[in-house]
């Protein structure tokens, strides 16, 4: 028995198909929701998301603002990238600050060196309420985590901002249905079907600008929790820890105190695409301390309203 491909119809290249699907979702949510916002951390996924949003509405300006949930523990290179990108696009930037949530007593300050990762959910939900946003676009991908693999493209949040994985709305065909009642909101994930490799291939194809820390560079690092952390204001050597200089890059960009660098000489987009296509460890496994708490760490945080 032989199997011959029946290519009677030219199918789309996978990057064109993914780009088209994401643009469709962006337009659909922008049309159906009253006050959408695009969550922009300055990381590669949200950079791709913003790039797609610009394409989807060009030559008009973006029909929604972008919001950065600022933990105050960012890499400076990422903040620079955020600001130059927003300025280049003439986008409206809303900054929701975890420090403000701490000052208002909404969350407890974990101290100058403690992680503020989990506190972001409160800041995010407060900002969504304050601005009356009914939809928030995020750059999350289903290949990142097993809980995300289960999430709909339009993910419904109740008036407490919670995700209920056992009662998700059926999501049929491309009939994305964005109606919510007052106080409820949606998270929309146009990059759901993209993998890390797709994202890098797309960045290379589109010659996109990115924060410099994604490319290999020399940096002072220290070993903690089996990760290379960048020494700086948010990571100070503890007793017994020694620092060294290494050529590294970041595969993901989160808070400086819980995002590890990987040893790499990939200093061009082509080299990064090659590195990612041959990687043995997932991006979160390699670099994110925040996902290591338990086998359902992401599900638990998402139930609370996390990205």
């Amino acid at each position: 028995m032989t199997v011959t491909p029946l290519r009677t119809h030219p199918s789309l290249d996978h990057l064109d198909a993914l780009e088209s699907q994401a643009m469709f979702i962006l337009r659909e949510v922008a049309a159906e929701c009253e006050r959408p916002v695009l969550l922009f951390s300055g990381g590669k996924d949200s950079a791709v998301l913003l790039h797609l949003a610009v394409k989807a509405f060009s030559p008009q300006r973006l029909p929604f603002p972008v919001m950065h949930v600022d933990t105050g523990q960012n890499f400076p290179e990422v903040l620079e990238f955020r600001d130059r990108t927003v300025e280049r696009l003439g986008a409206r930037l809303v900054v929701a600050s975890v420090q403000d949530s701490i000052d208002k007593g909404r969350v407890v300050d974990p101290g100058p060196l403690g992680s503020r990762n989990r506190l972001q959910s409160v800041t995010l939900l407060d900002a969504i309420t304050e601005h009356g946003f009914d939809a928030a676009f995020g750059g999350a991908r289903r290949d990142e985590d097993k809980a995300r693999a289960k999430e709909r493209i339009l993910s419904f949040r109740n008036s407490f901002g919670q995700w209920d994985p056992r009662a998700q709305r059926p999501e049929l065909w491309q009939l994305y249905q964005g109606r919510v009642n007052h106080g409820e909101h949606l998270r929309a994930f146009p990059l759901s079907d993209w993998t890390e490799l797709d994202v890098w291939q797309y960045i290379e194809r589109e010659r996109m600008d990115l924060p410099s820390i994604y490319f290999a560079h020399r940096r002072e690092v220290l070993r903690r929790d089996s990760m290379w952390l960048a020494v700086g204001p948010h990571v100070v050597p503890r007793e017994g820890e020694t620092t060294e200089w290494k050529t590294v890059r970041f595969r993901t960009v989160g808070d400086a105190n819980c995002t590890g660098a990987v040893e790499s000489s990939a200093d061009t987009l082509a080299a990064i695409v090659h590195e990612v296509s041959t990687a043995n460890v997932s991006e979160r496994g390699a670099t994110r301390a925040d996902d290591r708490f338990s086998e359902t760490a992401m599900e638990d945080r998402k139930r609370e309203g996390y990205f």
Partner: peptide
């Protein structure tokens, strides 16, 4: 690998769709 939710692992069943991605040189 695919049953990622807490309840799914506890009960040993699949409750919701899990999306997974694979690629060969010619197809995603």
């Amino acid at each position: 690998v695919t049953d990622g939710l807490r309840a799914e692992r506890e009960q040993g069943i699949t409750i919701d769709v899990a999306y997974r991605y694979a690629a060969t040189p010619t197809r995603k």
